[in-house]
Design a protein around this nucleic acid. Structure first.
Length: 580
RNA sequence: GCGCCCGUAGCUCAGCUGGAUAGAGCGCCGCCCUCCGGAGGCGGAGGUCACAGGUUCGACUCCUGUCGGGCGCGCCA
């Protein structure tokens, strides 16, 4: 709808240029707003204000010229000039109704899918396997997952990449500890990775002998020693299973098949160095192999190094990332590589992307983006910690979410069985945590507060889940009674119209989510949708409506609302409940 | 020292590419249950958009500076 209007405006501008009203060489960026104020129509543009100066005309006159130049169309019912020269557009009701009908008749809610499907490689979650997943891993997993779903829904091929950290010095310590325990107790202790890591670390710090053995094992592991590899594989397997449990509980789509671990690039790393050397980009500095790029200056204006090989010969994550970028374009066929990684790594990715292009690890047209995100904070405004001051394991956090959700639900009257209520609590609990995160601007830090996320009031998961069940209950009540799905849609009441306008925006919002990798746009949209539905529901009788035509129309609006809520939540990785 | 991000109502957050009277939710105050799920709806009070300049017809948004907070800058990932 927005695109169609843009097209009309582009034609109008073209005509005015041809007439000489606007200088032909003046490039015009068509801006279309969704005005906050209903009296300003469905869309508004400030074109006349922007073009008044180059056109040497006054804005209101120019606005009139633009309006006159808009081609005949069925999209608009009205164009008004307001204020200093805004043009307000009102979409014709027929157009709205057609769009609503198209959405109702489409499995994908009639969203515009990409004309050319791209391959989008999305790096998200990517935890370090040495430890159990903790709060710090939450955002990447759920934001990345939501954006992945949206990209897929919009017709792209999405390749998920879980770039887990499974290689590095700390594994020596872990293997040494596994070795020190007999096999059975190792298995037992591995079931709690967190304590296992702590115990190993303790031993490493306390015992010189143990530390030596740990270092020895790293070397052996990296040289492919079979015994070490066996221990390592065993450890990785347990750790990945832990991750998978968390993904499954979170409803994050990642599976083992998406795991492309750091170690998978091991045999590519010498080649990365050679490639850089071949390009003349490599410089030895204090024994380490570095790349100095002019783009990045240090303290006194001297270039900043990217270290790709340590003086001992070991490789660093920059090296691996370069190998991974190449793989993602050349093996996976990525047109767009997305990285959902903590904002603190912005500089690192900036450097890596620049270097990858310069050195030819990627070639041709490719989009490389690091989408950073802020930190999860406690109420004190400091990074979120558990009560004992340590990092909070994700598994524990999710347990608590479910427990708190159950408490919340038990305060309400319900006709659900205890067992059903427990399942509902699981969904509500997990969804609350996810939604609290997704509904905030990706780039900023946010405060993690159980009381804010687990409430039925405001922009929360419980509110939206409730809103969905409420719409849904209309159709439960309706039961088998048929209603005419081909009935005309009637938008006479302002609340019907407001709801209809919001429903129709779904497409637009999803494209914004994809463009900016910002799921909170979708959250805001759904909250607004639920609010408009509630107002409609309050003021416009549906099942009690005696006028059959009106009743059918309202049922159709309700059904579409349910479909959009369900699909929207699904794209956020949140399941809906039929009853709660 | 250099670089990046942030500062919006008492609290938690929105504010799209510069647009019309800066918006929600909580909390506070007031309405609305003969009616489909009140876990709801309607309304009110509450703001120097950190501060000072600048650009512009128009600035929360862009530029410069100041203050305050967070983070990153050579062999961890």
């Amino acid at each position: 709808m927005k695109e169609q209007l843009e097209q009309l405006l582009a034609e109008a501008i073209g005509q005015l240029k041809a007439q000489g009203t606007i200088p032909a060489d003046h490039s015009v960026n068509i801006q279309l707003d969704r005005p906050r104020d209903k009296s300003h129509g469905d869309f508004a543009t400030n074109l006349a204000l922007m073009l008044a100066k180059p056109a040497k005309s006054n804005p209101r006159q120019l606005a009139e010229a633009i309006v006159a130049a808009v081609p005949e169309n069925s999209l608009l019912s009205k164009m008004d000039i307001a204020g200093p020269g805004f043009i307000n557009f009102t979409i014709s009701q027929d157009q709205l109704k057609d769009q609503l009908t198209a959405m109702l008749n489409s499995d994908s809610l009639n969203v515009d899918v990409a004309k050319e499907s791209k391959t989008i490689v999305i790096d998200y979650s990517s935890p370090n396997l040495a430890k159990e997943m903790h709060v710090g891993h939450l955002r990447s997993a759920i934001i990345g997952d939501a954006v992945s779903r949206v990209c897929e829904f919009l017709g792209h091929k999405v390749v998920r990449q879980n770039h887990v950290g499974d290689w590095g010095t700390q594994f020596g310590m872990l293997l040494a500890y596994m070795e020190a325990l007999d096999n059975q107790s190792a298995e037992y202790e591995l079931s709690n990775l967190e304590t296992f890591y702590k115990a190993a670390k303790q031993r490493f710090d306390d015992s010189e002998e143990f530390a030596d053995r740990a270092r020895q094992l790293v070397v052996k592991l990296q040289s492919g020693d079979e015994y070490c590899l066996k221990l390592w594989n065993q450890f990785i397997d347990v750790s990945l299973s832990h991750c998978q449990e968390v993904y499954d509980r979170l409803g994050v789509k990642l599976t083992r098949a998406d795991v492309m671990a750091e170690s998978a690039y091991n045999d590519k790393l010498p080649g990365v160095i050679e490639h850089l050397r071949g390009k003349g980009l490599l410089t030895e500095d204090q024994g380490a192999q570095c790349v100095f790029l002019e783009e990045y200056k240090g303290k006194e204006g001297e270039p900043l190094p990217i270290i790709v090989q340590k003086k001992g010969g070991g490789y660093l994550y920059a090296t691996t990332d370069l190998a991974a970028i190449e793989y993602r374009q050349k093996q996976l066929g990525g047109d767009h590589l997305m990285y959902f990684v903590d904002a603190r790594q912005a500089l690192h990715f900036d450097q890596i992307f620049t270097l990858a292009r310069k050195a030819g690890f990627v070639e041709g047209e490719i989009q490389l983006d690091h989408y950073g995100f802020g930190t999860v904070m406690g109420k004190d405004g400091k990074p979120y910690k558990s009560r004992d001051g340590g990092v909070t394991k994700l598994a524990d956090l999710l347990d608590e979410a479910e427990r708190r959700a159950l408490e919340l639900l038990q305060q309400k009257t319900t006709d659900l069985t205890e067992e059903q209520q427990k399942r509902v609590a699981e969904v509500v609990g997990i969804s609350s945590v996810k939604y609290a995160d997704l509904s905030k601007n990706r780039t900023s830090d946010y405060i993690f507060d159980w009381n804010h996320m687990l409430t039925f009031e405001g922009n929360t998961a419980p509110y939206l889940l409730y809103a969905y069940t409420r719409v849904n209950s209309i159709f439960y009540r309706l039961g088998d009674t048929a209603f005419d799905r081909d009935a005309d849609i009637i938008l006479n009441d302002e609340r019907e119209l407001a709801l209809a306008n919001q429903l129709v925006r779904f497409n637009e919002v999803l494209h914004q989510v994809q463009d900016k990798a910002m799921p909170h746009f979708l959250c805001g949209y759904l909250f607004d949708l639920a609010g408009r539905f509630s107002s409609f529901y309050e003021a416009c009788p549906i099942l009690n409506q005696e006028d059959e035509a009106l009743r059918n129309s309202r049922l159709k609006l309700s059904m579409l609302t349910a479909n959009v809520l369900k699909q929207g939540l699904d794209l956020l990785g949140i399941p809906t409940l039929e009853k709660m």
